[in-house]
Nucleic acid binder design. Structure first.
Length: 321
RNA sequence: GGCCAGGUAGCUCAGUCGGUAGAGCAGAGGACUGAAAAUCCUUGUGUCGGCGGUUCAAUUCCGUCUCUGGCCA
């Protein structure tokens, strides 16, 4: 049974590490198939961080409809929950042209989209502030002990303050541990999981090839104004804004404050970016459902073939819903 | 040419009152459910510049050579 491409909402998740060529592949495919592109990169959501996050250019966005790029303004910050809401709004409103390419390297958001998140009220600020006060006054050991008392099996390290605070916040607010919530959501058969048919493809390059691309890209970013982007936020008093501590921007902040040389800036950005690539690879390694490609013609052709099979519904490996 | 500092992990440097050495960064591996490009965990054998000498034992003391930086000629 062959179903026409237009009858079904089909999504292609294009994941992998930064500078691997996933955006341009997605652009080409979306153009070829008359689809659209949705961002799932945690920095490209922000307005004013386009250069340093290697967001698509205006010219590229004119070729194919792009969504969820450059729409969060400082001092607002994005969360996975907000992302999901915006994403499903786009589908409900019928603005998306299919097939939809969901492009980005932020594993956490991709996971949130695929598996859904816990059914929780948005965290109330009072709990958070109280927990952070306790952390500051007594150190992390007390909070860690509180979590261990509720869930002896948890794997959150004492030093991982962020996860510790979040776990306690969940515990106090809902009365349940993160592990219990996880078990519960599995019992409900992932009712929050992504309800549409999707194919997941990934891009990954050999380390030296990646480094070479990162080096040229970094020099271009400086020419294209990553320093000016950063300065403009600092001038407006947003130095504490979380996205400024992301790869590249944190290095520019350091360059500006400590008056470093541009040569040093380039090498710092390259190092940070290579570290990001490594972390992204670690994240995606455990996901065996990703179909991988590099930039070789052979692999690209194979990937396109699999994409076309997926879209015509005759690929048995496809996880149709 | 003379004097003074230095030459210790890929880099920046500690240290050994003589018993073959350790931090930070980089690198490698990993975790990850509403900040995630963030946060956190694990991981350190290197002719301690070369060659001699003293010593049971030298990277450590002595001599000499060499290289780097500074000052004086």
């Amino acid at each position: 049974m062959v179903v026409s491409t237009k009858d079904k909402k089909k999504f292609i998740f294009v994941v992998g590490s930064t500078a691997s060529g996933k955006s341009s592949w997605a652009l080409n495919q979306a153009q070829r198939l008359g689809g659209s592109i949705v961002n799932i990169d945690s920095v490209q959501f922000y307005k004013g961080l386009e250069v340093g996050s290697a967001a698509p250019t205006l010219d590229e966005m004119n070729l194919v409809p792009h969504y969820l790029y450059s729409f969060v303004e400082a001092p607002h910050e994005m969360t996975a929950g907000v992302f999901l809401r915006r994403f499903y709004e786009l589908i409900e409103k019928g603005t998306l042209r299919f097939p939809v390419f969901v492009v980005g390297g932020t594993g956490f958001y991709i996971q949130a989209l695929e598996k859904g998140m816990y059914d929780l009220e948005p965290a109330s600020l009072e709990y958070r502030q109280e927990i952070e006060r306790e952390l500051k006054e007594h150190g992390p050991e007390m909070l860690h002990a509180e979590l261990t008392a509720a869930d002896p099996e948890h794997i959150i390290h004492v030093n991982d303050h962020y996860r510790l605070v979040r776990a306690i916040e969940i515990l106090r607010q809902s009365g349940e541990t993160p592990a219990q919530l996880k078990a519960k959501s599995q019992m409900q058969q992932n009712k929050n999981a992504f309800p549409f048919s999707y194919l997941k493809v990934g891009f990954s390059l050999p380390k030296e090839q990646a480094r070479h691309r990162v080096e040229t890209r970094t020099v271009q970013m400086i020419e294209n104004g990553i320093i000016e982007e950063t300065e403009s936020f600092l001038k407006r008093g947003f130095q504490e804004w979380a996205p400024l501590s992301s790869v590249g921007y944190k290095d520019v902040v350091d360059f500006l404050i400590h008056n470093k040389s541009k040569q040093e800036l380039v090498s710092n950005i390259v190092t940070s970016t290579m570290q990001l690539i490594k972390k992204q690879k670690t994240w995606f390694k455990r996901d065996s459902s990703i179909l991988w490609s590099d930039l070789s013609n052979e692999k690209l052709l194979e990937m396109q073939r699999r994409l076309d099979l997926f879209l015509t519904d005759i690929d048995p490996a496809t996880r149709a819903k």
